[in-house]
Design a protein around this nucleic acid. Structure first.
Lengths: 226, 226
DNA sequence: TCCTCGACGATCAGGATTTTCATCGTCGCC
DNA sequence: GGCGACGATGAAAATCCTGATCGTCGAGGA
């Protein structure tokens, strides 16, 4: 599987290339838009990882050129945290997925694999339950329209509950997903984390979404409407 | 590849089994020492994951029985944090590797794969440079004989530097190993972490082991003796 | 039925760790 | 010698974990 990375910042480029090579992909690295465009059009790549911010020809330019040349391999966009709007633009132009910097390498690898396997992924950008909304793109949460600030762990927990709403999640599952640890120690990190999350998303609202199931775990209860 | 897990605590057992099954191993689970002994002796396993603390026949008993029966598949011991001495005992009895609870599942999987591949792994238990010693088993550090307490991140960083002593480690590498993040954001976590580590292992000692290489990264300088 | 007990979960405060931010120092090039 | 980039440092702030204690649910017995 052959991948083209277009990234001007040296550190990031090298880092990505190294990681993907170690994951046994064949990787080319272009340092600017022009170079990237050229390689993308002539080389035979299965996927392109494309930074938006590039000197000279920017990410959109490269993407446009690729599509104009009739190539339709999946393109994974890299955008900065504060360039949210850019993503919309990228998606309209035919990007297949995006990743917000900074990201964990494991995250990139997962997206890359998924894109290569299924062709297109595109995660849902919004998770919702009742009046709670979780915007995965911007890492933002609102309930009843009110903005709520969550920390990393809180967000991860919220996301997990929301992705599997209606399911009772055993503590062991939560521990493995959020803490990546086996559950043998006598700690109550999970209870504490749930507490903090509830304080932010449930305490001041109705109905209560996070429900404890004694002896089982926690569920995000999806209110039966209709 | 067929794996036997001997673990009495239900949550842990199920969790391990599920994880290994998902990693496409064939897994049997024994809930106590007797059961485990029996299965290990009759079934044809490529590896055994063995909890030390078991009701009835404990981990060592099971291990002894396995070896006595002439089986010599690799055995991975699971020990609790405060049972350091147990490990020594386990290793003497012929365990091939150990893992301290609580551990990340990814860690277990890595060890399992490694044991299956190479037969026996047994990480080095001690890393050393000059008068600095890092005991991976007990997660302990001493310099010039003096015990030094390190936090999780500090230990991880110390271990990384020590494992690749003499090599200049670029920040991007460190970031990816210790923080699992790509290095695009403008943070100086690494500098701060290095600072804290130096305060503990270098400030009060000579020679200074952690050396900054301007524009490159950090090295653990191995003093040229002789 | 009611009461008691035990297990499980909730909650809070304290503390440890880690990150952020602002500022300072230093090296090397011009 | 001055400048600019890079790294070092210190302190504050945010986050997360630990441990202790309290509350509550439900089973089983009186």
């Amino acid at each position: 599987m052959k991948i083209l990375i277009v990234e001007d910042e040296k550190k990031t480029g090298d880092y990505l290339k190294q990681g993907l090579v170690e994951a046994s992909f064949v990787v080319d690295l272009a340092r600017d838009g022009l170079d990237g465009m050229h390689l993308a059009k002539t080389g035979d790549y299965d996927l392109v990882v494309l930074d938006v911010m590039l000197p000279g020809v920017d990410g959109w330019g490269v993407l446009k050129a690729i599509r104009a040349a009739g190539k339709n391999m999946p393109v994974l966009f890299l955008t900065a945290r504060d360039q949210v709007e850019d993503r919309v633009k990228g998606l309209e132009l035919g990007a297949d997925d995006y990743l917000v910097k900074p990201f964990a390498f494991s995250e990139l690898l997962a997206r890359v694999r998924s894109l290569l396997r299924r062709g297109k992924t595109m995660e849902p950008e919004l998770l919702r339950a009742a009046d709670l909304e979780l915007d995965l793109l911007r890492r933002r949460v609102t309930r009843a329209g009110r903005r709520i600030e969550l920390t990393a762990k809180e967000f991860a927990l919220m996301e997990l509950l929301l992705r599997r709403r209606g399911e009772v999640l055993p503590r062991s599952l939560i521990a493995s997903q959020i803490w990546d640890m086996n559950f043998d120690s006598d700690t109550n990190v999970i209870e504490v984390a749930v507490r903090r999350l509830r304080a932010k998303v449930d305490d001041d609202f109705e109905p209560k979404l996070i429900v404890t199931v004694r002896g089982m775990g926690y569920v995000l209860e999806v209110p039966e409407s209709a």
